[in-house]
Nucleic acid binder design. Structure first.
Lengths: 132, 132
DNA sequence: GGAAAAGTTTACGTTCACGTCAACCGGTTG
DNA sequence: CAACCGGTTGACGTGAACGTAAACTTTTCC
């Protein structure tokens, strides 16, 4: 009800997931909604994390990997002795993301080549393209 | 033995997968090695497809999705009546790849921001960075 | 105030992507 | 020729990421 708290139903509606999924993520310690009696109430923090979780999934990370990565987003929550280590891991993650993007760019370029090659085949056979 | 044929063992060594994986991919019709008696012999085509399969996995695609996508890479193998449709699907895939790259770029930018913010926290606390 | 809606826990089921035996075949090598 | 090495086919096992059904409480709505 509160401006800063959302029920499981509203969360599901908004993010296109099922209640089971959110409870599962809580069990795996990816989310940590507060309780009002029995009911879960998801916070602003949970929403931010869920966005990152779903994004991570789209990029092919496992939930366990995502759980680790989420910590990198909350450096300020860490123990002083751990911050430096977290920062290093963050750098590594950044490097990995960039590498992934570069590989994706290459894949895009190669696929574009294949496609334009296929386009020529279509033309030579006199087949109409969708846009014509 | 032949220059254009590779045993399952050599394939595994080269691509860092297990025999089980390659047999599984064959069962799912992602690969189609020829036979020399009982033995599988993987072709140049299989190698190209395997590269794409492993790449697809890194980008978070399921094997079934990858199977579909692989067909887009072999337009010339299609029936004339199907080529046009395949080409359209190829365009869609290209669009999706580009969207994914853009999302990845945004994620990279946001994470970089978080990181440099964490860097400031480190500095303010007088914690040494790894590179210093 | 009584039904329906929304939430809860518990627990077993399912799909995907392989892992892990067991039992077998066919070269080759000491 | 025995003993491996590399390959084969079943077939059952497994971890991840949920789905699904049952049985129950709590809110909401008319």
């Amino acid at each position: 009800m509160n401006d800063e708290h959302w029920t499981i139903g509203r969360m599901c509606e908004e993010f296109g997931v099922t209640p089971r999924t959110l409870r599962f993520y809580e069990a795996k310690e990816l989310l940590s909604p507060v309780r009002e009696g029995q009911k879960r109430l998801f916070t602003r923090r949970d929403r931010a994390r869920l966005k990152l979780i779903l994004q991570g999934k789209r990029f092919g990370y496992s939930l366990e990997e995502i759980r680790q990565l989420l910590n990198l987003y909350y450096i300020n929550d860490q123990q002083a002795t751990q911050i430096s280590r977290t920062y290093e891991l963050g750098q590594k993650h950044l490097t990995a993301m960039i590498a992934k993007r570069d590989e994706l760019n290459e894949a895009i370029a190669e696929f574009q080549e294949k496609l334009s090659w296929g386009e020529q085949v279509l033309a030579s056979k006199g087949v109409k393209k969708a846009a014509e």
